[in-house]
Amino acid sequence: MRYISAANQLALEQRQLVARDFLWLVARDRQSGSPVSEGLWSDVGNIAAAVVNPDTGSAETRNWYGTSSLISIDDIPLVANLSVQNVSLRMSQVHEEVQRIVRDYDCRQARVEIYRGLFDPATRLMVAPAECRFIGFVDKIEIRTPAENQDGSVVMVCASHTQEFTRSNPETRSHASQVLRDPNDTFYKDAATVEDWELFWGSEKGRVPTQKRKKLFGIF
Protein backbone atom coordinates (compact mmCIF):
# COMPACT_ATOMS: atom_id res chain seq x y z
CA MET A 1 0.00 0.00 0.00
CA ARG A 2 1.28 3.48 -0.84
CA TYR A 3 1.02 6.13 1.85
CA ILE A 4 0.69 9.79 0.88
CA SER A 5 0.59 12.98 2.91
CA ALA A 6 -2.67 14.33 4.33
CA ALA A 7 -2.44 17.40 2.07
CA ASN A 8 -2.12 15.26 -1.04
CA GLN A 9 -4.95 12.99 0.10
CA LEU A 10 -7.24 16.00 0.60
CA ALA A 11 -6.39 17.38 -2.85
CA LEU A 12 -7.11 14.01 -4.43
CA GLU A 13 -10.48 13.74 -2.73
CA GLN A 14 -11.45 17.25 -3.87
CA ARG A 15 -10.16 16.57 -7.39
CA GLN A 16 -8.25 19.84 -7.28
CA LEU A 17 -4.77 19.04 -8.47
CA VAL A 18 -2.38 19.02 -11.40
CA ALA A 19 0.28 16.29 -11.48
CA ARG A 20 3.85 16.92 -12.61
CA ASP A 21 6.82 14.56 -12.77
CA PHE A 22 10.33 15.22 -11.48
CA LEU A 23 13.49 13.39 -12.54
CA TRP A 24 16.65 13.45 -10.42
CA LEU A 25 19.91 12.04 -11.83
CA VAL A 26 23.18 11.48 -9.98
CA ALA A 27 25.83 10.92 -12.66
CA ARG A 28 29.65 11.17 -12.58
CA ASP A 29 31.95 13.91 -13.82
CA ARG A 30 34.08 12.45 -16.62
CA GLN A 31 37.21 14.29 -15.47
CA SER A 32 37.17 13.92 -11.69
CA GLY A 33 34.75 11.01 -11.26
CA SER A 34 32.87 12.91 -8.54
CA PRO A 35 29.05 12.64 -8.40
CA VAL A 36 27.02 15.36 -10.15
CA SER A 37 23.29 15.87 -9.52
CA GLU A 38 20.81 17.28 -12.05
CA GLY A 39 17.03 17.71 -11.88
CA LEU A 40 14.44 17.94 -14.68
CA TRP A 41 10.68 18.34 -14.49
CA SER A 42 7.75 18.08 -16.90
CA ASP A 43 6.59 21.72 -17.04
CA VAL A 44 7.70 25.17 -18.14
CA GLY A 45 10.47 27.17 -16.49
CA ASN A 46 13.09 26.44 -13.88
CA ILE A 47 11.87 26.09 -10.29
CA ALA A 48 12.97 25.16 -6.81
CA ALA A 49 10.62 22.48 -5.48
CA ALA A 50 10.60 20.29 -2.38
CA VAL A 51 10.71 16.50 -2.51
CA VAL A 52 10.77 13.77 0.14
CA ASN A 53 14.26 12.29 0.20
CA PRO A 54 13.77 8.50 -0.15
CA ASP A 55 16.88 7.78 1.94
CA THR A 56 16.11 10.00 4.92
CA GLY A 57 12.33 10.53 4.68
CA SER A 58 12.74 14.28 5.20
CA ALA A 59 11.74 17.07 2.80
CA GLU A 60 14.43 18.99 0.95
CA THR A 61 14.35 21.63 -1.77
CA ARG A 62 16.10 20.99 -5.09
CA ASN A 63 16.47 22.91 -8.37
CA TRP A 64 14.72 21.59 -11.48
CA TYR A 65 15.08 22.53 -15.15
CA GLY A 66 11.89 22.64 -17.21
CA THR A 67 10.68 23.97 -20.60
CA SER A 68 10.30 20.61 -22.37
CA SER A 69 13.45 19.09 -20.89
CA LEU A 70 11.50 16.05 -19.63
CA ILE A 71 8.99 14.93 -22.24
CA SER A 72 7.50 11.71 -20.91
CA ILE A 73 7.90 8.86 -18.44
CA ASP A 74 6.52 5.38 -18.96
CA ASP A 75 3.96 4.02 -16.54
CA ILE A 76 5.73 2.84 -13.39
CA PRO A 77 4.59 -0.64 -12.30
CA LEU A 78 3.46 -0.73 -8.67
CA VAL A 79 4.41 -4.20 -7.49
CA ALA A 80 4.93 -5.67 -4.04
CA ASN A 81 7.79 -8.03 -4.85
CA LEU A 82 11.52 -8.00 -5.64
CA SER A 83 11.22 -8.29 -9.42
CA VAL A 84 13.30 -5.84 -11.49
CA GLN A 85 11.15 -3.16 -13.13
CA ASN A 86 12.21 -1.17 -16.22
CA VAL A 87 11.06 2.39 -16.92
CA SER A 88 11.81 4.42 -20.06
CA LEU A 89 12.35 8.20 -19.89
CA ARG A 90 12.10 10.44 -22.94
CA MET A 91 13.89 13.80 -22.88
CA SER A 92 14.44 16.60 -25.37
CA GLN A 93 17.47 16.12 -27.58
CA VAL A 94 17.99 19.84 -28.15
CA HIS A 95 17.58 21.07 -24.57
CA GLU A 96 20.83 22.55 -23.29
CA GLU A 97 20.68 20.83 -19.88
CA VAL A 98 19.84 17.44 -21.39
CA GLN A 99 22.79 17.75 -23.78
CA ARG A 100 25.08 18.59 -20.88
CA ILE A 101 23.86 15.63 -18.84
CA VAL A 102 24.21 12.93 -21.50
CA ARG A 103 27.37 14.23 -23.20
CA ASP A 104 29.44 15.90 -20.47
CA TYR A 105 28.66 13.41 -17.70
CA ASP A 106 29.09 9.65 -17.42
CA CYS A 107 25.54 8.37 -16.96
CA ARG A 108 26.31 4.66 -16.91
CA GLN A 109 24.57 3.20 -13.84
CA ALA A 110 23.69 6.74 -12.72
CA ARG A 111 21.21 6.85 -9.84
CA VAL A 112 17.67 7.76 -10.92
CA GLU A 113 14.87 9.07 -8.71
CA ILE A 114 11.39 9.81 -10.10
CA TYR A 115 8.93 11.93 -8.13
CA ARG A 116 5.30 12.93 -8.60
CA GLY A 117 4.24 16.37 -7.38
CA LEU A 118 0.64 17.60 -7.07
CA PHE A 119 -0.08 21.28 -7.71
CA ASP A 120 -3.09 23.39 -6.78
CA PRO A 121 -4.36 24.81 -10.12
CA ALA A 122 -5.61 27.97 -8.39
CA THR A 123 -2.34 28.96 -6.71
CA ARG A 124 0.10 27.10 -8.98
CA LEU A 125 1.85 25.90 -5.83
CA MET A 126 2.71 22.35 -4.86
CA VAL A 127 0.31 20.97 -2.27
CA ALA A 128 3.04 19.01 -0.45
CA PRO A 129 6.61 17.85 -1.15
CA ALA A 130 6.73 15.50 -4.13
CA GLU A 131 6.74 11.80 -3.27
CA CYS A 132 9.30 9.37 -4.72
CA ARG A 133 7.76 6.78 -7.07
CA PHE A 134 10.85 5.03 -8.46
CA ILE A 135 14.50 4.51 -7.51
CA GLY A 136 16.91 2.81 -9.86
CA PHE A 137 19.85 3.12 -12.20
CA VAL A 138 20.37 4.06 -15.85
CA ASP A 139 20.66 0.82 -17.81
CA LYS A 140 20.70 2.10 -21.41
CA ILE A 141 20.94 5.48 -23.16
CA GLU A 142 19.89 6.10 -26.74
CA ILE A 143 20.40 9.48 -28.43
CA ARG A 144 18.07 9.58 -31.41
CA THR A 145 19.27 12.04 -34.06
CA PRO A 146 16.27 12.85 -36.28
CA ALA A 147 16.09 13.15 -40.02
CA GLU A 148 14.69 16.31 -41.57
CA ASN A 149 11.20 17.22 -40.32
CA GLN A 150 11.28 14.48 -37.69
CA ASP A 151 11.56 14.56 -33.91
CA GLY A 152 14.66 13.53 -32.01
CA SER A 153 14.94 12.54 -28.37
CA VAL A 154 17.13 11.09 -25.67
CA VAL A 155 15.74 7.84 -24.27
CA MET A 156 16.96 6.39 -20.98
CA VAL A 157 15.95 2.91 -19.93
CA CYS A 158 16.21 2.62 -16.16
CA ALA A 159 16.19 -0.53 -14.04
CA SER A 160 14.84 -0.48 -10.49
CA HIS A 161 17.20 -0.75 -7.53
CA THR A 162 16.05 -4.34 -6.95
CA GLN A 163 18.49 -5.36 -9.68
CA GLU A 164 21.16 -5.27 -6.97
CA PHE A 165 19.71 -8.54 -5.65
CA THR A 166 20.63 -10.23 -8.96
CA ARG A 167 24.34 -9.39 -8.76
CA SER A 168 26.71 -12.23 -7.90
CA ASN A 169 29.56 -11.90 -5.43
CA PRO A 170 32.92 -11.90 -7.27
CA GLU A 171 34.80 -12.91 -4.12
CA THR A 172 36.26 -16.43 -4.02
CA ARG A 173 37.08 -18.73 -1.14
CA SER A 174 40.82 -18.27 -1.45
CA HIS A 175 43.68 -17.05 0.71
CA ALA A 176 44.47 -14.22 -1.74
CA SER A 177 40.88 -12.95 -1.57
CA GLN A 178 40.71 -13.21 2.22
CA VAL A 179 43.89 -11.22 2.96
CA LEU A 180 42.60 -8.31 0.88
CA ARG A 181 40.14 -7.62 3.70
CA ASP A 182 42.45 -8.54 6.59
CA PRO A 183 46.18 -9.33 6.08
CA ASN A 184 46.17 -11.35 9.32
CA ASP A 185 43.27 -13.60 8.32
CA THR A 186 44.76 -16.96 7.26
CA PHE A 187 41.53 -18.99 7.40
CA TYR A 188 41.80 -20.03 3.70
CA LYS A 189 45.58 -20.37 3.63
CA ASP A 190 45.43 -24.06 2.71
CA ALA A 191 42.09 -24.03 0.84
CA ALA A 192 43.72 -24.68 -2.55
CA THR A 193 45.73 -27.73 -1.44
CA VAL A 194 43.83 -29.32 1.45
CA GLU A 195 41.89 -31.69 -0.80
CA ASP A 196 45.17 -33.31 -1.90
CA TRP A 197 46.52 -33.93 1.59
CA GLU A 198 47.17 -37.56 2.55
CA LEU A 199 46.41 -38.58 6.12
CA PHE A 200 47.57 -41.83 7.71
CA TRP A 201 45.31 -43.65 10.14
CA GLY A 202 46.96 -46.72 11.71
CA SER A 203 47.86 -49.19 8.99
CA GLU A 204 45.86 -47.35 6.31
CA LYS A 205 48.01 -45.25 4.01
CA GLY A 206 47.06 -42.72 1.40
CA ARG A 207 44.01 -40.51 1.12
CA VAL A 208 41.05 -41.46 3.25
CA PRO A 209 37.87 -41.56 1.14
CA THR A 210 34.96 -39.51 2.37
CA GLN A 211 31.55 -41.05 2.98
CA LYS A 212 28.11 -39.57 2.74
CA ARG A 213 26.83 -38.54 6.13
CA LYS A 214 24.06 -40.81 7.42
CA LYS A 215 20.81 -39.64 8.94
CA LEU A 216 20.16 -39.99 12.62
CA PHE A 217 16.49 -40.48 13.56
CA GLY A 218 15.48 -39.33 10.10
CA ILE A 219 17.38 -36.03 10.29
CA PHE A 220 20.96 -34.95 9.72
Rank of each mutant, 00 (worst) to 15 (best):
F165V: 09
Y115Q: 06
V79N: 15
Q163K: 09
S32L: 10
E148K: 15
A59T: 03
A128E: 12
F165N: 12
V98D: 01
A49I: 10
W64P: 00
A50W: 01
R15Q: 06
S37M: 14
D21Q: 13
W64E: 01
Q211C: 11
V52P: 00
Q85M: 15
N81V: 05
V138W: 02
E113Y: 13
V208K: 07
S88A: 11
D106K: 10
F200E: 10
Q93E: 12
E13I: 03
F220C: 01
L216W: 14
A59W: 07
T61D: 08
A191D: 12
R144Q: 08
R124G: 04
Y3W: 09
P129Q: 03
E164M: 14
F22M: 10
N53K: 05
E148T: 15
C107W: 01
L25N: 00
A176F: 12
T186Q: 09
R133T: 13
I114F: 03
R90Q: 11
E38P: 00
T61S: 10
I219L: 15
A7Y: 09
L40Q: 00
Y105D: 03
R2M: 07
A191T: 03
L70N: 00
P129F: 13
E142V: 14
W24G: 00
G117W: 01
R213S: 14
P35R: 14
